[in-house]
């Protein structure tokens, strides 16, 4: 019995030892699909790769957001076929599963997620967003022949599964709300991400470092978490000050642990302090 147990552990350790270096050695360029991912497909040009601040040379506006989440490196290429068109692929390696999930959850917008043991997938008529481990993959298929899209998209999904056999680690905050909210949540890791949902101007009144946005019919619920209740309380006091006599919010009422405000578009914003969290509800239509 003891011998069997030791063997099982050894195997698992071996797998782990094999996988961890494999994952650690993976960069965006090593995971990026290339020419020959399907027969007849070639790269339009040599794949480009950037790391760190050089991301600004790939993304025309919005690189800051990836930096906020925690960006490691990216690789991009256009793949083309003489008869089937072309597809553009960007492969982002973020510095954690949570960061990659965060970008994926924000970029998907309000679209439904295919939750898999492998990559999580969001797709539309001519695009794909995928999340697997620390990788976020964006696929633009607007120049693909419609008849080729399904095959290309399925192949790219399979490619990522094979290249990154990681078990996706979801942020703990997301796991708290997962059952009810899988398709509608966006995971935030800073104020820029929040500004994609609602802009509070150039200030950062909520000192956002981690949050979750849940889409509902008439509003968005935003759960912002902090190190502890004391930190949350201090920040909430600052938020009260921000909202008071702020021309952006012509109506405001509240104090202590909750408030309600209406912005210039007529949207109702409600906030409550709850332990180490600040709970926001922002109306969708004013």
């Amino acid at each position: 019995m003891l011998k069997s147990f030791s063997m099982a552990v050894a195997i698992q350790l071996a797998i782990l030892l094999f996988l961890v270096p494999a994952l650690q050695g993976q960069t965006a360029i090593s995971v990026l699909p290339g020419a020959g991912f399907l027969p007849g497909w070639e790269a339009s040009y040599d794949a480009v790769a950037y790391e760190g601040d050089d991301l600004f040379f790939l993304i025309n506006g919005g690189a800051d957001l990836y930096m906020e989440y925690g960006f490691a490196d990216v690789a991009a290429v256009e793949l083309k076929h003489p008869d089937k068109g072309s597809v553009y692929v960007e492969m982002y390696r973020m510095d954690s599963d949570s960061a990659a999930f965060g970008i994926f959850s924000l970029r998907k917008g309000g679209l439904s997620v295919e939750v898999n043991p492998g990559p999580w997938v969001v797709y539309g008529e001519d695009f794909l967003h995928l999340w697997q481990g620390p990788f976020y993959m964006s696929v633009s298929g607007g120049r693909l022949e419609k008849s080729a899209r399904l095959q290309v998209f399925l192949t790219l999904i399979g490619h990522l599964t094979e290249k990154v056999p990681a078990e996706n680690k979801l942020p703990a905050l997301y796991e708290e709300y997962r059952q009810a909210e899988a398709n509608s949540a966006a995971y935030l890791m800073g104020p820029l991400a929040l500004s994609n949902i609602y802009s509070f101007g150039h200030e950062n009144p909520f000192r956002v470092s981690e949050g979750l946005v849940l889409e509902r019919d008439i509003d968005r619920e935003i759960i912002l978490t902090y190190a502890d209740a004391s930190t949350a309380s201090g920040i909430f006091n600052g938020v009260l000050h921000f909202f008071t006599d702020n021309a952006r919010f012509p109506q405001f009422e509240g104090s202590g642990r909750s408030f309600a405000a209406v912005d210039r578009q007529g949207k109702l914003i409600e906030a409550t302090l709850s332990g180490n969290k600040i709970l926001l509800a922002i109306e969708k239509q004013g």
Partner: peptide, 9 residues
Amino acid sequence: IGFLPEDVL
């Protein structure tokens, strides 16, 4: 578009 000009540095 509903922004406060004072927020636009």
